[in-house]
Amino acid sequence: MYKRIFALVLLLVLVGIVIANVVQDRIADNTTEEEEEAVLVDDGSSSQGAAIAPAESAGVEPGEPAPDFELETLEGDNFRLSDLQGQKVILNFWYSWCPPCIEEMPEIQEFYEDYQDEVEVVAVNMTTHENQFSDVGDFIEEHGHTFTVPLDKEDALSDPYVVYAAPTTYFIGTDGTIQQPRKIGPMDYEFMEEMVQGMD
């Protein structure tokens, strides 16, 4: 009788040890993979917290020309960035289910309402990251946003603007060059004021 109980207890202990080792190995493997895939970058960008990105992802630097592009807007019009030459531009990249994007959108709208005579706001939707296309229009309509929303349906701008996280924002001066460090993460009204005041 005691031998059977002892054998059963021993078996349970051994099973427990095996399960604990498997779980521990999986945790260790996941941690190692994340460390190998991620490189912490200090690229001079303005961001909240550390950004995890490839080492070549510094983005378009201040003083460099903003890469031109042409996209269809949410309203079906053609939008070309170079048509805004001579104006200050806030160029934002976003998608509708991104929590930091959702956080900053009311701030962008408020800023646009106050400064639209001085600054053009262009919020490029990273459409390939949306769950479905209709989410874009639903989001803009629901929240009453009135700035320009071009649709990057083929992910054409991720490479030239090195967009690896959303939201990502660039500040383009009247001469068509980037004039402030890019911002990765949500912006508030005061931050946009500060960036624009430092632009020509």
Results as ranks from 00 to 15, higher is better:
M1E: 04
Y2F: 02
K3N: 14
K3S: 13
F6Y: 05
F6G: 12
F6P: 00
A7C: 01
L8H: 05
V9R: 14
V9G: 05
L12S: 13
V13C: 11
V15M: 12
G16D: 06
G16K: 09
V18G: 08
N21T: 07
V23Y: 12
V23Q: 12
V23E: 10
D25M: 10
D25N: 15
R26H: 08
R26G: 04
A28S: 12
T31S: 13
T32Y: 10
E33F: 04
E34R: 15
E34G: 00
E35D: 03
E36V: 08
E36S: 09
A38N: 14
V39I: 12
V41W: 06
S45L: 06
S47L: 05
P54K: 15
A55C: 01
A58K: 14
A58H: 14
G63S: 12
G63F: 10
P65W: 08
P65M: 12
A66E: 07
A66R: 09
P67A: 09
P67M: 12
D68W: 02
F69N: 07
E70S: 15
E70I: 02
L71C: 09
L74E: 05
E75T: 14
G76E: 06
F79S: 10
D83R: 07
D83V: 07
Q85E: 11
G86C: 08
G86F: 01
Q87F: 00
K88I: 02
K88N: 07
L91I: 07
W94I: 04
Y95Q: 09
S96W: 00
S96R: 10
W97S: 15
C98D: 03
P100W: 01
P100S: 08
C101I: 04
M105P: 03
E107S: 09
E107P: 02
E107H: 11
I108E: 05
I108T: 02
F111D: 01
E113M: 05
D114M: 07
Q116V: 00
Q116N: 14
D117S: 11
E118A: 06
E118T: 04
E120N: 07
V121L: 04
V122H: 01
A123P: 02
A123L: 05
N125T: 01
M126W: 01
T127R: 06
T127F: 04
H129A: 09
E130V: 03
E130L: 06
N131L: 07
Q132P: 00
Q132E: 14
Q132G: 03
S134F: 00
D138V: 08
F139C: 07
F139I: 02
E141Y: 01
E142V: 00
H143A: 03
H143P: 02
G144D: 05
H145I: 07
T148N: 09
V149K: 08
P160T: 09
Y161K: 10
V162A: 15
V162C: 01
V162T: 14
V163M: 06
Y164V: 04
A165W: 03
A165I: 03
A166R: 03
T168S: 14
T169G: 05
Y170V: 08
F171W: 04
I172Q: 06
G173A: 08
D175R: 10
I178D: 04
I178K: 05
I178V: 15
I178H: 05
Q179R: 13
Q179E: 15
Q179K: 13
R182V: 03
R182E: 02
K183H: 13
K183A: 08
I184Q: 11
P186H: 10
P186I: 01
M187D: 03
Y189V: 02
E190D: 15
E193W: 02
E194N: 14
Q197L: 11
M199R: 11
D200P: 15
D200Y: 04
